[in-house]
Computed example of a mutant assay.
Amino acid sequence: MSEFFEMLMVVAFGISWPLNIVKSLRSRTAKGKSAAFTVLILIGYVCGIVSKLTADKGLTYVFVFYVLNLVMVSVDLGLYFRNRRLDAERDRTAEK
């Protein structure tokens, strides 16, 4: 039963990432976002994955949700750096 509730927690957190990715794609700006915050979330998901890999029970279905969230947060972090580059290009163009 604890695995089920852990899965619900990870899914609840994970619902926000696709929405955040879409927002990052559409806005094309990194303003208002924090790479440090996103990296800390990545570290948390990595720790969850390591916990599942080293558990005596073996892998459970919750592992899949940790990996999915890790992938989505990684995509969002990549978009942050892309958008930061786009912000810098816009700033350079505006200065001219």
Rank of each mutant, 00 (worst) to 15 (best):
residue 45 Y to L: 11
residue 78 G to V: 03
residue 79 L to T: 01
residue 6 E to S: 13
residue 78 G to P: 05
residue 35 A to T: 00
residue 72 M to E: 01
residue 59 L to G: 07
residue 39 V to F: 06
residue 38 T to E: 10
residue 34 S to D: 08
residue 77 L to Y: 02
residue 91 D to S: 15
residue 45 Y to M: 07
residue 21 I to G: 04
residue 3 E to N: 11
residue 27 S to C: 07
residue 31 K to F: 05
residue 23 K to N: 12
residue 80 Y to G: 01
residue 83 N to E: 06
residue 42 L to V: 06
residue 62 V to H: 06
residue 62 V to F: 05
residue 44 G to D: 07
residue 55 A to I: 09
residue 23 K to T: 10
residue 4 F to D: 15
residue 28 R to N: 08
residue 87 D to N: 05
residue 50 V to P: 02
residue 87 D to Y: 07
residue 76 D to Y: 00
residue 10 V to F: 03
residue 23 K to F: 07
residue 11 V to S: 08
residue 11 V to Y: 04
residue 83 N to Y: 03
residue 50 V to M: 07
residue 94 A to K: 14
residue 46 V to I: 13
residue 40 L to W: 12
residue 28 R to S: 13
residue 73 V to Q: 00
residue 29 T to W: 03
residue 7 M to H: 08
residue 18 P to V: 06
residue 69 N to G: 00
residue 68 L to D: 00
residue 39 V to Y: 08
residue 11 V to Q: 08
residue 60 T to L: 05
residue 73 V to C: 00
residue 43 I to N: 05
residue 23 K to H: 07
residue 8 L to I: 15
residue 66 Y to G: 01
residue 92 R to D: 11
residue 73 V to N: 01
residue 1 M to Y: 09
residue 52 K to V: 07
residue 11 V to P: 05
residue 34 S to R: 04
residue 23 K to E: 08
residue 21 I to Q: 05
residue 73 V to E: 00
residue 15 I to C: 07
residue 2 S to T: 15
residue 2 S to I: 15
residue 64 V to H: 00
residue 66 Y to P: 00
residue 81 F to G: 03
residue 11 V to G: 06
residue 92 R to P: 09
residue 8 L to S: 10
residue 43 I to H: 02
residue 35 A to N: 05
residue 92 R to T: 12
